[in-house]
Design a protein around this nucleic acid. Sequence first.
DNA 1: GTACAAATTGTACGACGTACAGAAAGGGGG
DNA 2: CCCCCTTTCTGTACGTCGTACAATTTGTAC
Lengths: 217, 217
Amino acid sequence: MPGRPGPRRTLSPETITDAALRLLDESGAEALSMRGIAAAAGVAPNALYTYFPDKAAVVRAVFDRLLGRHGIPPLTGPGRWDERLRGAAVGLREGVLAHPGSAALLMSAPLDGPEALRLGELVLDALAEAGLDRETAARASYSVIVHVLGSIALEAADQGAAPSEAERIGGRRAGLAALPADRYPRTVAAADVIARYNTVEQYLWGLDRLLAGITGG
Amino acid sequence: MPGRPGPRRTLSPETITDAALRLLDESGAEALSMRGIAAAAGVAPNALYTYFPDKAAVVRAVFDRLLGRHGIPPLTGPGRWDERLRGAAVGLREGVLAHPGSAALLMSAPLDGPEALRLGELVLDALAEAGLDRETAARASYSVIVHVLGSIALEAADQGAAPSEAERIGGRRAGLAALPADRYPRTVAAADVIARYNTVEQYLWGLDRLLAGITGG
DNA sequence: GTACAAATTGTACGACGTACAGAAAGGGGG
DNA sequence: CCCCCTTTCTGTACGTCGTACAATTTGTAC
């Protein structure tokens, strides 16, 4: 099909998501407005509606590009399957957490974009290499993805929780640090234990336990 | 301290979150606006700012009450520890998914409200009963909570993804159902496999694998 | 009764998503 | 070469949002 009529100058879905990612890096997720993205792309706000039906569609596209931006390794690489899986998990975590606020998008859309599919293929490929049959691999990949994305989202929610200056009580945050140990004895003790590890270690510990339960049971 | 001056008639944090929960049940999570909550409580929008510094604080409080609304069983109940854990997990899932859209709040705030703490105590209690030492129980509880909340949030995001009428392409949704099987062979097969199970079964399968990896390793 | 502090309202501002209509712009048929 | 038609982008506007500010109401303490 040769060129269609009309002026088709500046925009495309890619230039729009490019501008959105630039905005996300510079100003955080709460700045991801239609007007802001349009301004970053140098067009009027409504111009975006030629390429996306609404804001949710733009956000989904941006989220998918976020998933694929951080060097997910090829499907069949060298090294042991679990090492490849751990490496991809750590890379994804670092890439997402580098842009605080973007993690809020992680659980907000179905995982059906092209980059999300590439991620799914990677996980399934590694699990097949581990010797799982098709059914177990399918179920396991879902649980692995839940663990990876859920951990990242929860960690971001924890550290991104607006300290907000208005919610401090008596100078310290009304959170785990100020718990009544008599009412929540185990939780306080657990917070104490977990605080001794950095989060990436806890993240990989959970992933390893999950993989052990899948392959060993 | 006897009564403070000023008229303190109608409101309190509880009446506000009550109104918000009523609104959430009737009109969904996207209707959770300050103005809407205030109207449901019968006051002017600004009245809420006497009790909460901003909307995010209201949402956090509502989210915490959501966590506790669905009959989380007492910390030390009858029955085997894993049965209690599974029961609480299923109950939480049903309760949250009954209000589509409210699941979007699940990963949006740190888990430090009173009901979130009660949930943490329940999990830790069950894990202690399983014979785990303090350190392992602490780490395991974090992973279990990630799995439970992450699964629910992802399921809600999948099914709540606005079909939106504008994003249908050729009459069918541009999603997993229309995948190019030559580019994503494993993913397509996995979607096929998982579709044969209802989600609660997959949810418990993942929980069981995780628990097996924790207690057996 | 009078002064003061706290709770609630009235009003307003800026930003948001997006609908609608029009203007600019370029290719295809004559 | 010119006209027409499709497509892209802009101008403008509407309703809603979160929330800041000042005024008003209301109760307690002296």
